[in-house]
Design a binder for these strands. Sequence first.
DNA 1: CGCATTCTTGACACCAGTCAACGTTAGTGG
DNA 2: CCACTAACGTTGACTGGTGTCAAGAATGCG
Lengths: 248, 248
Amino acid sequence: MENGTNENPLTALVRKLNQHSPLTREDENAVRELRARVRNLRPNEDVVVQGAPPTACVVVIDGMVARYHLRADGGRQYLGFHIAGDMPDAQGLLLRTMDHAVCATDSARVALIQNAEMLALFKLRRDLALVFWRETLIDAAMFRAWITNNSSRPPMPRMAHFFCEQYYRALAAGLAKDGRCRLPLTQSQIGEALGLSLVHVSRTLRALRKTQTMDFVRGTLAVLDWKALAEIGEFDPVYLHPHQFQAQ
Amino acid sequence: MENGTNENPLTALVRKLNQHSPLTREDENAVRELRARVRNLRPNEDVVVQGAPPTACVVVIDGMVARYHLRADGGRQYLGFHIAGDMPDAQGLLLRTMDHAVCATDSARVALIQNAEMLALFKLRRDLALVFWRETLIDAAMFRAWITNNSSRPPMPRMAHFFCEQYYRALAAGLAKDGRCRLPLTQSQIGEALGLSLVHVSRTLRALRKTQTMDFVRGTLAVLDWKALAEIGEFDPVYLHPHQFQAQ
DNA sequence: CGCATTCTTGACACCAGTCAACGTTAGTGG
DNA sequence: CCACTAACGTTGACTGGTGTCAAGAATGCG
C-alpha cells in the first residue's frame, strides 16, 4: 500500500479520521482540499523543533516519524512513533510552544498545513474541529498507555506491549501484511522509548524472540503469534479507540 | 482559598481556562451557567470507572482527584492528580469508553456536567470548543512530561520533578501559600505514580529532604528552595503552558 | 487506650545499567 | 567483486541500584 506520488497527500489522513469519526463527503473533500506542502525528510531529520512556536502542522504521508523530548544532557525520550495518516503535532494548532520535537526515524514524507488554514477550516466546518479534537484525545490515550507501560511493566512485557501497539496501528493503517510491518528503529531508539539501556533491549529482545511470538530484524517487525504476544504485553487496544465514535 | 459553598461551583474552572485562553464575559457566563450537579466524594471513592461509557464530565471544585489505570493484577498506575478547576476526564466528551478511572485521593467535591450539555455549549459558542480543546492539549503535554519523568530520570530527580509539578499547579490555582500546598497522597500512591516501590519512595524522600529544598509530611508539601528543587528535578514549566494562548 | 494505616529501617537478592570486546550488516569506493 | 569503514547488534563480566521481605515505629482514629 505504498503511497503513489499522484495520490492526494491527505488521503491517509482522511482514512484515519474516518476510523473514529465517519466524515460526510463534504467534510472529506474539505480536508483533502487543504493546501499542503509536501516535504521529504531524511533519516533523523527534524521537522518540528522543541521550544519553537508552531506555524504549520504535520501529517505523515509515508515513512515513520517520531516525537521526542530532548533532555538536558542531550539524551532523547521518544514519546511515540507515527505512520501514514498520523498528525504528530496537532497540539501545535492551539499552543504557543512545542514542548517536544518531531523527527523522521527513517526517510519519510510529510504534508505541512499552515495552522491558519486548519483553523479556518474549523470555522467553516465546525464538526471537523470535533473530529480533529477527537484525534488528539486518542493521542492522549496513547501517552497514558506509555506512562503505564514504562512505569509499571517489567522489560519483557513492556517491549511486547510496545510491539503490539506498533503492529496494531500499522494494521489499522493498512501497512501490515503477512504478519509483518515496517518499524524502522534501532534497538537504541527502542531503548530510548521504553526507558531501557541498549544492552538490555538486546537481551530482552532475545528473550522475547524465544517465546516464538514475534521477531524483529533490521526495521521489520514480524508477529508470529498475536494472541500470545498480546498476552505477554497485557495489550488491550481499547485505548486506541478503534472504530469508535460518539454521535454528536 | 477554600471554596465557599455559596460560590458558583464552576468559578475555579473559569479561572483556569482564563489562564491559557482569555474568555469574553459572555463566554465566562455561559460556562458558569452550565447545569452542574455537585457531588461529594469520600477518600478513595471512584467517580469515573475504567471501561465505562462516559456520560458526564467532571470538574474538580475542591480537594484532590486522581486518574489511574487499573492493571490486570489489581495494581494501579496513577496518571495525574487534579485540583480545583481541573477536568480530569475531558476526553470522555468525545470518546466512547473511559480507558482510565478517576477517584478522589482525599475527600473532594466535584461538579458533574452532562456531556450533551457541554456539546450543546460548543455548538452555541464555537470559540469555547477551542478553549476546552486547548485545555485537553495541555493535559496531553503533562502526560508526555510523565513519560519522560518516569522513563528517564533516576528516582530523586523524578520525585523532585513530580513535586515541582504539583506545587507549580497548586500555586497557579491559588492553593499554595507560604511555600506550602496540600498534596493528600500516601507514599504508596506516590510510588504508584512514579513507578517506584513504597520502600524506595521512603528512601528517596529521605534523600530529597536532606537537600533542604522541600519537605513532605502527611499530605502537605513544603517547598523550601524552589530554584534548587527545580534544578534537581530538571523542572521547566513550559509544558504547562502558563499564561499562553494563541490568538484565533 | 487499642487498632489500623502509614512510614521507616535493615538485610538481602536480583534485575538492569555500564564497560568492554567482538560480531554482523550495510554502504562506499577501489 | 573485494576491502574497508561505520553503524548496529550481541555477549560476558561486573557492579550498583532498586525491589522484596520483614520487623518495628509513628500516627490517626474510634
